[in-house]
Simulated assay, not measured.
Amino acid sequence: MGHWLQRNILEPGKLPLLLALSAFVLTFVITRTVTRLIRAGKGPFGNVEAGGLHIHHVVPGVVLTVAGGFGALAGRQGPGSGLFAVVFGVGAGLVLDEFALILHLADVYWTEQGRQSVEVVVVTAALVALVLAGFVPFGVDNLSQDELQDRGTVIVTVGVNFLLSLLALSKGKARTAIFGVIVPVVALVALVGAVRLARPGSPWARRFYRRRPHTRARAGLRAYRHDRRWTAPSRRLQDWIGGKPDPQPARLPGRRP
């Protein structure tokens, strides 16, 4: 365990990634906590406004992301790389916390559409954590001949996983597709997603089920049963992480933290 930790997490080349991931997750947690306090009218926090214009936290997030990204590219190994990694992680956390706002070009933070921000943050953190833990065949130098041979095998595996994930994605199974690219074990799940019926409305269903009403009906029934089983637990988890959406339409700009 100690050797694995030293090799995959504490390796010098991966320290900036660890710092960026930590800053990313911590920023998201702090941001959600502050916005929920403002929403509830508790604590000393309040909206940031300039000349009557509400400044969403995606704005400083973009500035920090740009500064951290370019600083990391321009800098060298050392304390500076760690600092820029933290700046980038903070900025990315602020930006992705309002991903739904960028996607819809509307203030949907406390609506059903706003759940997309939480999903994107969770998936991003999980994928970066997998990369940090060594679940990709890239990023480690000075390998022996045997390790290089193993790397080639893993690269082929990742390529197959990627193809399966593309097929699963075309069938409307985005989460399975994303994780299938990174983790070989999840490729078994991606394979199941690739061979099973597509979700209604997915590109695969629109292309291949258009003249197959029986298959289209089966796909709709399977999606209904799946959603009925998993939607409620998923909603409870999202509410716990990001806050419960408003039952009414989105609030006017300047009223939402």
Rank of each mutant, 00 (worst) to 15 (best):
30 I>F: 11
31 T>H: 07
31 T>V: 15
33 T>H: 15
33 T>D: 13
35 T>F: 00
37 L>I: 03
37 L>M: 13
38 I>D: 02
38 I>C: 04
40 A>Y: 04
40 A>E: 05
40 A>V: 11
41 G>I: 08
42 K>T: 14
43 G>M: 00
43 G>H: 04
45 F>G: 05
45 F>T: 09
46 G>A: 12
46 G>C: 10
46 G>S: 12
47 N>Q: 10
48 V>S: 01
48 V>A: 01
49 E>V: 11
50 A>S: 15
51 G>A: 07
52 G>N: 03
53 L>N: 13
56 H>I: 07
56 H>T: 11
57 H>D: 01
57 H>C: 00
57 H>T: 08
58 V>L: 02
58 V>R: 02
60 P>Y: 00
61 G>S: 04
62 V>L: 06
62 V>T: 06
62 V>R: 05
63 V>L: 09
65 T>Y: 07
66 V>I: 09
66 V>S: 05
66 V>G: 01
66 V>C: 03
66 V>P: 03
68 G>A: 04
69 G>Y: 10
69 G>F: 08
72 A>P: 06
73 L>Y: 11
73 L>G: 03
73 L>T: 13
74 A>T: 13
75 G>L: 05
75 G>S: 09
75 G>T: 06
79 P>K: 04
80 G>Q: 06
80 G>T: 03
81 S>C: 09
81 S>E: 13
83 L>P: 04
83 L>F: 12
83 L>K: 06
85 A>K: 02
85 A>Q: 01
85 A>F: 00
85 A>Y: 00
85 A>D: 02
86 V>F: 02
86 V>Y: 04
86 V>E: 07
87 V>D: 02
88 F>E: 08
88 F>L: 15
88 F>K: 14
89 G>M: 04
89 G>C: 05
91 G>P: 05
91 G>F: 01
91 G>I: 02
92 A>G: 12
93 G>L: 07
95 V>Q: 00
96 L>G: 06
98 E>M: 04
98 E>Y: 01
100 A>R: 03
102 I>M: 10
104 H>P: 10
104 H>A: 13
104 H>S: 13
104 H>G: 07
105 L>N: 09
105 L>V: 14
106 A>F: 07
106 A>I: 12
107 D>P: 08
108 V>K: 03
109 Y>K: 14
111 T>M: 10
111 T>H: 09
111 T>Q: 12
113 Q>W: 14
114 G>N: 02
116 Q>L: 15
116 Q>F: 15
116 Q>G: 15
117 S>M: 03
117 S>F: 00
117 S>P: 04
117 S>K: 03
118 V>E: 02
118 V>T: 15
119 E>R: 15
119 E>W: 14
120 V>N: 06
120 V>F: 09
121 V>R: 03
123 V>G: 09
123 V>D: 06
123 V>A: 12
123 V>N: 06
123 V>R: 07
126 A>L: 14
127 L>H: 14
128 V>F: 13
129 A>R: 07
130 L>H: 11
130 L>C: 09
130 L>D: 07
131 V>T: 14
131 V>F: 15
132 L>T: 10
133 A>E: 09
134 G>S: 02
134 G>F: 05
134 G>D: 05
135 F>C: 12
135 F>A: 11
135 F>Y: 15
135 F>S: 11
136 V>W: 10
139 G>F: 06
139 G>S: 07
139 G>D: 10
